[in-house]
Amino acid sequence: MSARGPSATERAASRRIVAAFGASAAGAVGFAVTYAQGGNTRWEGACLAVAFAGLAVGLAVWARRLVPVGGYVEEHEGFTPPPTEQAMTAAELTAPDSPVRRRGLLAALGLALTALGAAALFPLRSLLPFDRARPERALKDTPWGPGVRLVDAAGRPVRPQDVPADSMVAVFPEGHVDTGDAPAFAVRLEPRRFSRPPAGGHLDGLVVWSLLCTHAGCPVRTYLKGTARVLCPCHQSSFDLLAGARPVAGPAARALPGLPIEEGPDGFLHATGDFTAPPGAGFWDSP
């Protein structure tokens, strides 16, 4: 309970409230001036914080010192309505001429509404345009195919000697550098160290795999030189490139799909087909 009349405590509280609101106004002016002078995120934020904190403190002191607080009681009607009231409502709802009594008409109405609701679902299909491939087909197909040249991120075709040992080169199908499921990487390994041959074959130790993790589709872009492993930075799956890019740790369960390649007559690398499996995360129709 707060005190009545302008007592000493009340006067002190009032002074504090005025000071707080004053600080708030100062903060607001500070914000405006900072903004007008060219803006600085820190000072703008600090000034606005002071402005609102001043308001908050002033209002809070006001609420706690100058206003009757607490101890009021309000009645709380129960939420179980009296049975008579319920019965009256029910009777009115189901009066003899009430629509709810017309069972047959209601059934027809229900049929019409159901049909309308079902029909309204159809346009949702347009969210995926009809000229697109069916999703499971699209997930399996990539721009890779026989004869597609391998290019680097800048679009330059890649020759076998562009892939040095101890390095990882991201490669793309020519003309599809931005396609989501196409990125691959080329590494050069020692063929005699293979414990399992790469699924897509190799060209004197030059192997190309899909860059997309088979767990959740992140690019496995972290190449640990010397261990011949790649690591996914998202969920830490690692794949052993010497063992056919088999997952060796972390949550991934399938090996990275390989890309069959050859050196074309032009001296550049060409794919001889698509990935050995759909790239990226698994789905229901994954072969």
Binding site: D162, A165, K225
Partner: peptide, 13 residues
Amino acid sequence: VGPGLMPVFPSQV
């Protein structure tokens, strides 16, 4: 150089 586990990026890369 590619110190430690870091891949090497020679001039062809």
